[in-house]
């Protein structure tokens, strides 16, 4: 026989899953929200996304080739996803050179400095976003108004926070607020956070494709809803309603797409619930009592840091970890 037999340990078959396939699925799930954002913000949004993805991929391949001397892994699409998620966290009016800096921080510091995919403790896209938010707060918090009559340029959460600070009551500022607009994306905000419904469609897609499980998103959103719901019931004039809280800001984007990043989230189901609750609580703390109107980015980054601890102590129950049946 000419061709030699191949020998390897079992199993001899492999499922169809690959890193590339998973990343591609997440990108597909982002498409509906992307479509809405293009519809609302037009060409600038497209430009931000393209620049962000292109610079993330470029930086990853450059760093891998010249600094780390690794085998290039841009084919796994993880850099593309980081770029897309970074863009989704930026306002459409941001100068494009800032996007490039954000991408450099996200890929260079957030991901490659730890050794590349799988090793980064923090979500790279959020590292990039938070860097930009702290360094260029004006550019990062100025949003073009989607419609002429909508709340002028401020996101719903910023608007509400300012109004509450100035002594207005919730019922006063709720005048003219339309939940349907929020659901469909007719509000100011970063590219990815505006279209709640489109994001949820992507969530359903991810669940169907079994890319993620429900644990993290549901834990985060439920925690936000329950916590703010409790506050709302205690004093409806001072605290925003839970629906307003869940629909606005990056709550859905963060819960479904950012917090579920495999690398930076716990591996066990129980751990995921704990992680999700933590993010929910910190988000509400920042939103209600903190200086920033929105806090889910910080909440996710803080909980990212806790993940190794969660993974260490929260383990799945082993089969047979029960006492034998008495005879």
């Amino acid at each position: 026989m000419d061709n030699k037999l191949i020998v390897s340990p079992s199993p001899h078959v492999h499922g169809k899953l690959s890193t590339r396939r998973l990343m591609l699925d997440v990108l597909i799930a982002l498409l509906p929200a992307f479509a809405v954002t293009i519809f609302v913000y037009g060409i600038p949004a497209l430009m931000v996304t393209v620049v962000s993805i292109a610079s993330c991929v470029l930086f990853e391949s450059l760093i891998q080739r010249f600094l780390l001397k690794q085998r290039p892994t841009i084919g796994d699409l993880s850099a593309v996803l980081t770029g897309a998620l970074l863009a989704f966290n930026l306002p459409s009016s941001i100068p494009l050179w800032l996007v490039v800096i954000g991408a450099l921080v996200a890929i260079g510091i957030g991901k490659m400095s730890f050794g590349g995919i799988g090793r980064n403790p923090f979500n790279p896209a959020l590292v990039g976003r938070v860097f930009l938010l702290l360094s260029f707060p004006v550019a990062m918090t100025t949003f073009p108004s989607p419609t002429p009559d909508a709340m002028s340029g401020a996101t719903p959460l910023t608007f509400a926070k300012e109004a509450l600070k100035s002594g207005q009551s919730v019922s006063q500022l709720m005048d003219g607020v339309s939940y349907t607009d929020m659901l469909f994306g007719l509000k100011a905000g970063s590219l990815g956070e505006i279209a709640a419904l489109a994001l949820l469609i992507g969530f359903v897609y991810l669940l169907c494709r079994k890319v993620i499980t429900w644990h993290i998103p549901v834990a985060i959103l439920a925690t936000i809803a329950v916590f703010t719901g409790g506050l709302y019931l205690s004093d409806p004039e001072h605290y925003l309603s839970p629906i307003y809280q869940v629909l606005n800001g990056g709550a859905i984007l963060g819960a479904v797409y950012m917090a579920t990043d495999y690398v930076t989230s716990p591996m066990s189901k129980k751990g995921m619930i704990i992680y999700g609750i933590g993010i929910g609580l910190i988000t509400v703390f920042i939103r209600v009592w903190g200086a920033y109107p929105e806090g889910i980015s910080f909440a996710i980054l803080i909980m990212n840091a806790v993940v190794p601890l969660i993974d260490k102590y929260v383990r799945p129950t082993k089969f047979g970890a029960v006492k034998p049946v008495k005879q």
């Binding site: 030699k4 037999l5 191949i6 020998v7 390897s8 340990p9």
Partner: peptide, 22 residues
């Protein structure tokens, strides 16, 4: 002469526990 091709994890320990070798 090689009689077969090993395609498992590139570790002698794994290969040795599997079979006689290439």
């Amino acid at each position: 002469p090689r009689t077969n091709i090993y395609d498992g994890a590139s570790s002698c320990a794994v290969a040795a526990s599997l079979y006689a070798g290439e």
